[in-house]
Design a protein around this nucleic acid. Structure first.
Lengths: 226, 226
DNA sequence: TCTTAATGTTACAGAAATATTACAAATTAA
DNA sequence: TTAATTTGTAATATTTCTGTAACATTAAGA
């Protein structure tokens, strides 16, 4: 079950793109191109999350934000702010305007989607999948814990992300490049062979008590979760 | 379900040929004969892949490429570059202009089609068929697995590619040269007889438990999948 | 049947890909 | 700050794959 998202943003092209893609992901989406109306519609729509432009023709994003926070029904509505580059990100960040996250335009939809899910995961865990499982492997994204056959496993941050990645698409083979792109922070340059080492570390951690190997090496192609 | 492909290429005859054939394969295709307009239309069209001419009357392919890579919404749009022979292929190859693949004119539609699918398979796996079957043989391109009568078969990389190749056109006889060209990485020189050995290895792997031979030798011509 | 060209089979050495280990630098926790 | 953990890489070990050559077998025409 997916949630409802409301967008207040005056650039129609952005709204269109984001709305379309979010709907494709199963969210129910509604939007408004200006602040005052948006505020009203939003309260009727009762979304699980709001995407809010920082600079609007009528009301500023921060005013909307304050308005929302004053309304007891929406006090805890998660808000992700959309800001243009240079629009004093620091202020937004520092100024605790009650924003849950913000993203700088231009952004890729994937990045936005990831942030939306991250925020929803905290605020409204039922909307977003928080547990990934495969066979006797379980990963809890909220608590950041991993279990194999109900026995907890300790993983470093990178191994955690790596396993999380494999769990989103079990059985599928990923090349080292694909793994790098997705698991490592953008623009980080790491040797492709480095992945082998992390695979080894992950293997070592999750293959407890002689249980069966869960990571498959596919020569010349990459790795997969069995 | 097939995806959307956009073409920017000034030779109308090429556009026509490619567009027509791609549509026949089920793709939704749109095109433009020049760079600047193409760039605009492309962004409206939101394709899953772009075929881009290297030499255009107004903008060079590489400029378009850069423009696209700067636009966060299209940063990861797969691009296949179309180049005339002699147009410094090396540069395109080396110069990491963010191109996913390139093909030299004149090309056969089949070759283009194969490359398009290969690229889409990485970027957008749901668009392309990922399973090849023939009789009781099954090959899964995503999981990189091969089955005969539901029993998994272990193949080395080359044998996998070889079988994949045969499965795209069962019953058709391929000469050793054709096999070499398609299955082996470009510019690799291998003895033609080497194929015999790989055929043997493939045969040995897929003919389990006395099941019937699936690879046919056509004397003086080559091999085929029955 | 003999001859010959084409294909099948085998074994093996070198190449290529992956696994493993150790370690120093970077990061985080105490 | 110091200690502990985590990371990336390089060096080394191990495994698996590849291509080829040498020899065996088969098919087809003379």
């Amino acid at each position: 079950m997916k949630g409802k998202i409301f967008i207040i943003e005056d650039e129609a092209s952005i709204v269109q793109l984001v709305q379309h893609n979010l709907e494709k992901e199963g969210f129910v989406v509604s939007s408004s191109l200006n602040g005052n109306e948006g505020l009203k519609e939003l309260k009727k729509f009762e979304p699980n999350l709001l995407l809010l432009d920082w600079m609007l023709p009528d009301l500023s994003g921060i005013d909307i934000c304050k308005n929302i926070r004053r309304d007891s029904n929406f006090k805890s509505l998660p808000i992700i702010m959309l800001t243009a580059k240079g629009e004093e990100e620091d202020k937004i960040k520092g100024l605790e305007s009650g924003v849950d996250d913000y993203i700088t335009k231009p952004f890729s939809f994937n990045e936005l989607s990831a942030r939306i899910k991250a925020v929803l995961r905290r605020s409204d865990p039922n909307i977003v999948a928080n547990n990934l499982t495969f066979e006797d492997l379980k990963l809890d994204r909220i608590e950041k814990r991993v279990f194999r056959s109900d026995k907890e496993i300790q993983l470093g941050p990178t191994e955690f992300r790596l396993l999380e990645f494999f769990l989103t698409n079990p059985k599928r083979v990923y090349s080292r490049d694909q793994i790098l792109e997705t698991v490592w922070p953008n623009n980080v340059n790491v040797e492709s062979r480095t992945i082998d080492v992390h695979i080894r570390r992950l293997r070592q951690s999750i293959n407890i008590e002689g249980k069966k190997e869960l990571i498959r090496t596919v020569r010349a192609s990459g790795y997969s979760l069995i």
